[in-house]
Design a binder for these strands. Structure first.
Lengths: 267, 267
DNA sequence: AAAATTTGTATCTTTTATAATACAGATTTT
DNA sequence: AAAATCTGTATTATAAAAGATACAAATTTT
């Protein structure tokens, strides 16, 4: 009745550690495509764990498609033929390059309510304490695979200009502008966090997976905060891309974000 | 002095899950400063685990300073008085705002060698297969606390223009320009990953912690790749900040990175 | 074709995490 | 001041992860 349950992230502490170590060696080039891993028995000695534990780690690596195992022959690294490149959000456009990639996204509304703004939202949006905000949580998917978990906070007065249904179809900042809000600027902050149970379930990933975390505060022409976004992205499906140019001369030489130009194609 | 960072996520699978869930609820505002958590017995029922497991999770939260526990009274969320804001790297300058923050960083060289470029480096830098590169791994600290783990790949011909010692004192792109390299542009890609054993040890964090991952390819005026950087940052100490402006009219309205302007102060 | 390797599978033991339960000490409520 | 709550601590039992071992099946080497 219970299927083997091929987990991408080992539950146990040691197996997980071995998995992460090998994954890192593959990711940073210490182990390259086609390289043979040491036999399981050797790995067990290297990591000072039992072969069973090594096995669990290798199972996870194989499930993730990072290695190929063949009885008698051994385990080899396989990084080519990896799942297509993750979706990219170009900083210059603030929008995922969906059109270029021929991909479409769908949104599903997980929760929708009005309530007092949490402290950090109120201060970021310059709201009165306890001011009412609309809190909506959505999951975006591409080709049926969820890749982002979005929670937005919008002052109640503004949020009343669009319907709960609109949220499932239209990007929020479009809704805001359609509502007459004059967006002036935004500030994004990117970081990383671990997936908790609810987010993990919504995104179809293991609890404790790494997530790209993006927070965005959007302000209108009067410097009133109109949107606070807390977004979590699967790092294997989403990245923030930033083309940069070196400008200026001599000691005034500095970096500047390249605008309007997509990132250089990988040859 | 800095305390040895007792953030230690629980080893066990369930305790870790509870810890992450509660931590997330605190992080995203569902639980606010001063809020009382349900008593341990209630939490055990809510999460369907034993009180012992709840206790381990709360121990970790308390060690991380996110909650305060008082016998008889209960456990309350404490987010104020938290460790100061993380260092920010402004996109517009590509440099951490160290001067403004009155902070200094030191670098420690973990490894230094020459070898064949890993495939992904070779293709990103447009190198010949097997071309020699200098591979250096450094850890940067601020006030004695390590916050980033940097691995750089530089073509051997270029790398010979500076010494191993220079690496510990000077940002790499400065060394490159001092070496006569004319940097034209760069491309950064930001994502997230989990800390493996070696990185975890170097950064003084637990294995399996979330890390901000940044990859940067720097090219010179002839479009030759001169540096490949793979950087890992502690998310509690480092963020990438991106100020953005809405420009244009009507349907041509779009986002643009704001340049030369530091992010708005949080009042 | 035989021998040596290496992965696949199975069983058993040991260790560790979790569960269940009880009660003491601190704090608040009645 | 007594009762009700809640955290702190301890004990024992059960479940899960890890270790140890043996051998079969696939592959490579000799």
């Amino acid at each position: 009745m219970n299927k083997p349950e091929k987990s991408l992230l080992p539950e146990g502490a040691k197996a997980r550690q071995v998995y992460l170590s090998l994954r890192d060696q593959i990711a940073d080039g210490r182990l390259e495509d086609g390289d043979s891993l040491p036999p399981e028995q050797k790995l067990a000695e290297i990591f000072s764990v039992s072969r069973v534990t090594i096995r669990r780690a290798l199972d996870a690596l194989a499930a993730a498609g990072l290695v190929v195992r063949r009885a008698g022959s051994g385990t080899t690294v396989r990084t080519s033929g990896q799942a297509g490149q993750p979706m990219a959000m170009n900083l210059a456009t603030l929008m995922p390059q969906l059109v270029e990639m021929g991909q479409t996204t769908t949104a599903r509304l997980l929760s929708f309510s009005y309530g007092a703004a949490p402290e950090f939202v109120a201060s970021a949006l310059h709201l009165q304490p306890k001011e009412q905000v609309q809190i909506a949580t959505r999951v975006r998917s591409t080709d049926g695979t969820p890749f982002s978990h979005l929670t937005t906070y919008v002052p109640a007065g503004i949020a009343e200009n669009y319907s709960e249904n609109d949220l499932a179809t239209t990007p929020l900042f479009k809704l805001l502008e359609l509502s007459g809000v004059q967006i002036k600027d935004a500030h994004q902050s990117v970081s990383a966090t671990l997936a908790g149970p609810d987010v993990a379930e919504a995104l179809g990933i293991a609890v404790g997976s790494a997530l790209l975390s993006l927070r965005r505060v959007v302000r209108d022409v009067n410097d009133n905060g109109v949107e606070y976004l807390s977004a979590l992205y699967r790092p294997d499906m989403f990245r923030v891309e930033m083309p940069l140019t070196r400008v200026g001369d001599g000691s005034a030489r500095h970096w500047q974000p390249a605008i309007g130009k997509p990132p250089g194609e990988p040859s």
